[in-house]
Computed example of a mutant assay.
Amino acid sequence: MSHADLTVDEWLTLSDAGALGVAAAIAHDVGAALLSVNTHAYAGRSGRVALFERDGIRYALVPGGTVELGFDPARFVPTSRQRQDFAEAVAEYSVPEPIHHFLAGQLSPARRVALPARLVAVRSVDADSLLTAEHDGTDDHESVMARLEWRGLRPPTPDEWEYDCGAGATTLFRWGDEYPEGEPYGDVPLIQNPNFFGLVIGDDPYRAEFTTDPAVLCGGDGGGALCGGYGGFLSWITLATAYRDPVLVEAIYPYLVGETPVRPVLPVP
């Protein structure tokens, strides 16, 4: 079996020795160093994380399979605080009601997709950090793809990014449907701690990340809601796993490409 066919259920049911063997074989295949294979817990879920390193970038194994992505707003039951935060946004910013209608316009739809196993960078990097001596000064999505391809890498697809973030959680956020007190920025363990797959992802609404689709950035809104003071609900929703901002690309291209993050993916053969 190709390691790209490894599913999350298969990975989690391996013995410790079996998981170490699979991780070692993947490391050999991709020319990476295997750093560790350890148990890991996040938001009440316990699993196993394998960490690798190649060319100064640390990666975690993200198993694949047929997975559920997106979010069905009809199943969302807001808390009283969320209803209050949303009502304030409606009153001040003419946000469309009801709350489920608003969410439908902000989140990708519920769906099932098949994804390969792969190694995913634990942290995103700014596109400028991928520059080479051959860089011709072009700053667009194609140039970012080329910089990664030169290293045998690529960005995640939008579907992959969602799964990398939510790790199979079907809730609004990767930790549940509620958000904590305060703003989605700074010292907030829920967004800064490594998720179920060991990734630090969706941890800063200012740092939305490139995907393979030039029109889709994931993991934030560029900080628009937070910086604009739009309140708790609108600020936190930008870190929902399935959040999509269709107008963010207009602010990124062509002037902010270099400082926009991308999360390298190292394909597994």
Score class of each variant (00 low, 15 high):
residue 28 H to A: 15
residue 28 H to L: 15
residue 29 D to V: 03
residue 29 D to W: 08
residue 31 G to A: 06
residue 32 A to Q: 12
residue 33 A to H: 12
residue 33 A to P: 00
residue 34 L to S: 08
residue 35 L to K: 11
residue 35 L to V: 11
residue 36 S to C: 05
residue 36 S to H: 06
residue 36 S to I: 00
residue 36 S to Q: 14
residue 37 V to F: 02
residue 40 H to I: 10
residue 40 H to T: 04
residue 41 A to K: 00
residue 41 A to C: 02
residue 41 A to H: 01
residue 41 A to R: 09
residue 42 Y to T: 11
residue 42 Y to S: 15
residue 42 Y to C: 09
residue 42 Y to W: 15
residue 43 A to S: 11
residue 43 A to W: 10
residue 43 A to V: 05
residue 43 A to R: 06
residue 43 A to C: 12
residue 44 G to H: 15
residue 44 G to P: 05
residue 45 R to N: 09
residue 46 S to P: 00
residue 47 G to I: 12
residue 48 R to A: 14
residue 49 V to G: 14
residue 49 V to M: 08
residue 50 A to V: 02
residue 50 A to W: 06
residue 51 L to A: 13
residue 51 L to D: 02
residue 51 L to F: 14
residue 51 L to N: 07
residue 52 F to I: 07
residue 52 F to M: 10
residue 52 F to L: 06
residue 52 F to C: 00
residue 53 E to G: 05
residue 54 R to F: 11
residue 55 D to G: 06
residue 56 G to L: 13
residue 56 G to K: 12
residue 57 I to W: 01
residue 58 R to H: 14
residue 58 R to G: 04
residue 58 R to K: 15
residue 58 R to T: 14
residue 58 R to N: 11
residue 60 A to M: 00
residue 61 L to E: 00
residue 61 L to W: 05
residue 61 L to N: 11
residue 62 V to W: 04
residue 62 V to P: 03
residue 63 P to Y: 14
residue 63 P to S: 11
residue 65 G to D: 07
residue 65 G to E: 04
residue 65 G to A: 11
residue 66 T to K: 14
residue 66 T to W: 00
residue 66 T to D: 05
residue 66 T to R: 12
residue 66 T to Y: 11
residue 66 T to Q: 10
residue 67 V to H: 05
residue 67 V to G: 12
residue 68 E to G: 03
residue 68 E to K: 13
residue 69 L to E: 01
residue 69 L to R: 05
residue 69 L to H: 01
residue 70 G to M: 10
residue 71 F to R: 03
residue 71 F to S: 08
residue 71 F to C: 02
residue 71 F to W: 01
residue 72 D to N: 14
residue 72 D to L: 08
residue 74 A to G: 06
residue 74 A to W: 05
residue 75 R to S: 13
residue 75 R to N: 07
residue 75 R to D: 08
residue 76 F to A: 08
residue 77 V to N: 08
residue 78 P to F: 13
residue 79 T to K: 03
residue 79 T to P: 11
residue 79 T to A: 12
residue 79 T to R: 00
residue 79 T to F: 09
residue 80 S to V: 07
residue 81 R to T: 14
residue 81 R to K: 15
residue 84 Q to A: 13
residue 84 Q to Y: 13
residue 84 Q to L: 15
residue 85 D to P: 13
residue 86 F to G: 01
residue 86 F to T: 00
residue 87 A to M: 08
residue 87 A to N: 07
residue 88 E to P: 01
residue 88 E to R: 11
residue 89 A to N: 04
residue 89 A to L: 03
residue 89 A to V: 03
residue 89 A to D: 07
residue 90 V to D: 10
residue 90 V to M: 04
residue 90 V to G: 03
residue 91 A to C: 04
residue 91 A to N: 07
residue 92 E to S: 13
residue 92 E to I: 09
residue 92 E to N: 08
residue 92 E to C: 07
residue 92 E to K: 15
residue 94 S to I: 01
residue 94 S to F: 10
residue 94 S to Y: 05
residue 95 V to L: 07
residue 95 V to D: 04
residue 95 V to H: 10
residue 96 P to D: 07
residue 97 E to Q: 15
residue 99 I to D: 03
residue 100 H to I: 02
residue 100 H to P: 03
residue 100 H to A: 08
residue 101 H to W: 13
residue 102 F to Q: 02
residue 103 L to G: 00
residue 103 L to I: 08
